[in-house]
Simulated scan of single mutants.
Amino acid sequence: MKTLSLLFSISMVLWIVSEIIYKQTLKSGAADKKDKDKSTLNILWIVFLISIASAVTISYRTRFPVSEGLWIKYMGEFLILSGLLLRFIIIRSLGKYFTVDVTIKKDHKIKKEGFYRWVRHPSYSASLLTFLGLGIYLNNWISLVLAVIPPLLAFNHRIKVEEQALVEQFGEEYIEYRKSTRKIIPFIY
């Protein structure tokens, strides 16, 4: 159990540090159209920090277990690490077109292969997988709701803003792409 707790602590630090690094290094450039974000990056950070803090706090103050078995913590940790790894891979796959703020690059193209074949926002999908893992690891129904629902709502707001910018830039091409894919959960949503 101590090893699992240590792994959880390391993965939480890795999660927060990686997001800080992404925020500092993957911002839009001077030549990019960056008036599209509408403060969604700030909203995401506020919601995420409150969501994580409240989920962890509630898990220590109340007991509404998802399961009595230790397997639930292992599953949660697996989902956390899977979400972190997938997000890293997805960010790398988009390359120079990935920015943390809603931005349209000068030579931007719609990516439709890889993860983008199934969902339009796989980076958000991976983040939600990490939040889901956190909620499951904490093994508390209230913590699970607090870990998943606020980030999902924040991502939905961000997606609305982002897709508006993409439709303005790409018009019918993006509208057609949107018809053939899901937002963040393959085959479902």
Rank of each mutant, 00 (worst) to 15 (best):
L81D: 05
L85K: 11
A55E: 02
R92H: 14
G95P: 09
S18W: 09
L49N: 14
W118E: 01
L134K: 15
W45M: 09
A165S: 04
F64M: 15
D35M: 08
I91S: 11
R117Q: 03
Y74L: 07
R158A: 06
P151S: 11
I175P: 02
V102M: 05
F78T: 14
L153E: 06
S59I: 07
I52A: 03
K111C: 03
E168W: 04
A154F: 04
S39C: 04
I21P: 12
V17M: 12
R92E: 10
L166W: 06
F187H: 05
G171E: 08
K111I: 04
Q169A: 14
H121G: 01
F78Y: 12
Q169I: 03
I58R: 00
V13C: 09
G171M: 03
T62A: 07
R178F: 00
N140V: 13
A147I: 05
I149L: 15
I110F: 05
R117T: 01
R120L: 00
Y22S: 14
A165I: 01
M12N: 07
E168Q: 09
E113Y: 04
V66G: 10
L7F: 14
G29Y: 10
E113P: 01
S11D: 10
L128H: 04
E77Y: 14
S59H: 10
S82T: 15
I110V: 05
I10N: 10
L166V: 05
Q164Y: 07
N139L: 05
K112F: 00
S11T: 14
K27H: 11
S93Q: 12
V66H: 14
R182F: 01
I142T: 08
H108M: 06
